[in-house]
Design a protein around this nucleic acid. Sequence first.
DNA 1: ATTAGGG
DNA 2: CCCTAAT
Length: 704
Amino acid sequence: MVLKKKQDYGFNGFHVSTIPRAPRSIRRRGSIKKPVEDSQICAIDLLATLAGKLLQESESSSASSNVAAGKDRLNISKDGIKQELQDDDKPLKGECLDQGSCEGIVFVSKLASQDLSPKYTVKQFPHAVHDAVLDCTSTVASPDYLDKVGCDVMVTCKSKNIFGKVPCKVERGSPDCGETCGDLENGAEIRQDAEGEESGGLTMANRCSSKDSVELCMKNPAQINSDSNVKLSLNRDSIPNASFPKHRNDVKIGIIDDDENSYRCNQHGTKIKAFRSSPCIGDQRIRKLLTSRYWKVAPKLKDCELSNTDGGIKPVFRKRKFCGTRKRYQRETTFKRRKLFERHMVVASDGGISSESVTNSPEKNMNTEMGGSAAMLHGVSGLSSSVISHQASFNSGDSHVKFSIKSFRVPELFIEVPETETIGALKRTVMEAVNSIFGGGLHVGMFLQGKKVRDDYKTLRQTGISHNDNLDTLGFALEPSPIHPSPPLHTEDPPFLLPSDTSQLLTRSPDPPTFDSGFSDATPDPSPLTNLGNQVEKIHDSVPSPTDILTDKTMPDSRALVAVPAMSLEALAVVPMNMKTNRADLVQRRTRRPFSVSEVEALVHAVEELGTGRWRDVKLRAFDNAKHRTYVDLKDKWKTLVHTARISPQQRRGEPVPQEVLDRVLSAHAYWSEHQAKQHGKHQVGTLRITGPLAERDGIGQDI
DNA sequence: ATTAGGG
DNA sequence: CCCTAAT
């Protein structure tokens, strides 16, 4: 059985083979974080594991999956996830992969402190037509355990089948688990009630970790890619025919809060609260993912280590931090966040802000309408999803489809500023965040049934949008900068591949951060695709090539609809990377923020004291509060300053920097060049002062 | 994570 | 500013 491959890890002892690496920079931060980190579990992983098991069981009905085999043990194995997936895949692969559409199944196993060993069975029927895509994700949570063990497990199952048949079922065998997952058919999601609220599954990790009993490992997207056989997607699209409505209320997917380091769940339900407190776990990973623009990460396994015996790769995310109190880490976090923040300024979440309702007159051309609606926004930064209420149609003959876009939601923005920050500064920060979103120009993305509609040349009808049906599943999203809208993209992007990482999500582009749910809140039932889901998916999925290939080949005709959920451009971009086809632009460049004179002065001052080889220190000293200025930026700026100081004033551009400051730049540069700077430390200050009389200001930290 | 450079 | 290699 596949299951066997899984490793049983002692309840307490399971440590993923994490490979602790010594922090590179000994200088500072290194030591703080680690111990706990390793021990933490990712809810996602668990879920994944569980799902996998379920799936597996279904596959081999006879198999008595011991999901929770050991009484005292945790069955979860990090490896398990992948391995299982792989294993499972094999069987499935034939079916699914060949079809090209199978999404990985995630499986989560439960933690059972004791006898509890509920069985979950997931069945998939990869019957899908070869064009069809399936996504199944299931996570199982059992409240009981939580109580007992302290970990809550939540299971959510989603399945998506393009064709509407749902391949996934989840069954719960154990009494302990309060509820049964029920069928996941048609993409419905089922979630058992978990005690925790927001974090849901994620939270689990925290708890678990606290007890030390379990560790969860996140998979590294990269690895997944490497494995390429399986994709994991926590969330996926809804099924076309849809049965979402049924469950949707029940399940919500947590959203990852980049800054917080925690996953959040958007839930309607209240249950989740318990979870919420736990921070940490996935988020770093996520961040990273987000951060890496192209998901390059995949190829690099640096961060992860593999303990794969089976050949399964299990990357463990090493970087997890301990998430204790936020404050404590604030600084660090801040720093790290920066990246995320800058690149992905925004994380989308439920909170929609601006809304305008627009009713477009019927047009056949979606694009046209879209443009109109976008305009309406006034630059509001609604990135994510839009809700559309479709209204009906007119002429029967040439049917027109009327769209009413009630609002574009603004993704949740996470901003962190010191208490000492001024209101003005805060406002600027917010403005920047918003601007960053729009910076590259907005584009409208369209999603139908959770899939991104890429083919701009298809008619609505061809795409499946007709006046008399489900416009509910239609969603628009504002996307950051454009990538070629349609045709080119899809060629390269395989829909499925999306996400991989890295999310890095980091790009500023709203997209990544944005999860759009294709459908907005207004709609009674948000589409099953939740933003989170997407994120999650990203994380897990990095399925590489196979999928891609399949996709491309497989869906020539159906291209218009891509399985891409709410993925943002970035996500898309990412994929290509792997593929090798880059879309250069997907990654949005950071908005340009010219250094002000005061910043230059602060920089110069700091360099005078610290030298030119200690940019991190310079950053800390003079720009600690300027989140958008990284040490690399400072170094670059210094480089340009030196250059600027050497050229004639006429050749200089931008805000003129006082000659006096430039003189100091040259002096400091000369000085440190000869002093090999780096080591000396700070005493030299006096020496340098030569140049300038005054103008020493302290850091500009406040500038935002 | 930082540093150093090239682009 | 971005991207990378090397630490």
